[in-house]
Design a protein around this nucleic acid. Sequence first.
DNA 1: GTCTATAGCACGATAGAC
DNA 2: GTCTATCGTGCTATAGAC
Lengths: 207, 207
Amino acid sequence: MRKKSNSNSRERLLDAAAKIFRERGYVATTMRAIAKEAGIEAGSIYYHYGSKDDLISAVLDFGISALLQSLKQAIETLPPKTSPRRRIELAINAHVSAILQYGDYMLAMRRVFGQVPDRIWKRHMSLRESYGDLWNGLLLDAKQQRILRPDIDITIARLFLLGGLNWTVEWYKPQKQPVAEITQTFSSLILDGLLIKPDTKSMPRRR
Amino acid sequence: MRKKSNSNSRERLLDAAAKIFRERGYVATTMRAIAKEAGIEAGSIYYHYGSKDDLISAVLDFGISALLQSLKQAIETLPPKTSPRRRIELAINAHVSAILQYGDYMLAMRRVFGQVPDRIWKRHMSLRESYGDLWNGLLLDAKQQRILRPDIDITIARLFLLGGLNWTVEWYKPQKQPVAEITQTFSSLILDGLLIKPDTKSMPRRR
DNA sequence: GTCTATAGCACGATAGAC
DNA sequence: GTCTATCGTGCTATAGAC
């Protein structure tokens, strides 16, 4: 995708690191374990990455960039007339698809939160904030077009929604249900709600 | 509340452990740091708890038990005629209030997930499952009373809802908004949805 | 019940051979 | 580019004084 090295080893190493960081968190991850996962010895890592901190930085960078790029691509290329509802549905699908596709990176990001040295974590907050801003923009647009309820705070709705979506990565089993089906349920839950309503002209179409 | 020791030190130690586990995760937490937080020396911990594993077990036990007890108390003492909507609203409020009240324990549980030795973690899955079952029962009741949409899978709705609620513990700042206000927003989001609907003045009631 | 001291072990990182 | 060997550090847990 966009890993910046032309070297195969660097890439294999990064994937191995994401997998081990995901499983053990930051501190419990040992260079020896990453090396073993990548099929080399621990000392050899230092030819490619200067330190354990370098490795976690690269994992975090790649993870959040993948998310950002995936959402941008999903919503910025839509025809201008696309309805806000459809935009939000597509964003939800893009988000969940991306966190599942890059599962090791996403779970690594979740798991090392609060363990990584501050200076490294802070370098990533700007990227994370860009991502939140993208969502806020999406929801704000819909609110201004009087599609969304005016009494609901967009930021709280976004935090609730993304919290629910991100949790998927912890329980989703691909063999049981296609992603599109799950994301359609999520969309309908957050947009239409769980209650039966007397007037439901825009109830979810089954696909 | 219900910590089973009559000793003050054990209790202070447990709170200290929860706080440090929350901040650092399982592996990065050192007995020295817990001791310092509790105001004693590392060696002295072993008079109260046999090992680091004993400590994390106690933290996990206390945390999930507090959640379970809090939800049970909130819903099992309601008058039988309480509407399903009101039950769900109260459960959401009880859940969020509890995870915020026992923040250190809740965040410790989240953070050490996947780091704690398997045998310890598995001992807690039964308690966690009891908690999920409680929620499933609540939602299933409402569904059977034709309050909830029949096309939505209860389990997916529960996972989405709890994912969104649990995320609160990561961003909520008490000084900005009272808990009751946030949980009311959550309830309305999950029950009524984010879209503007024909009648939103009074909450939809079945006729 | 809490202390000090330390045994025993695993870690990140480096050095130098190949 | 990858290896082996090892240094220095910091950890859990124990032993024994008080």
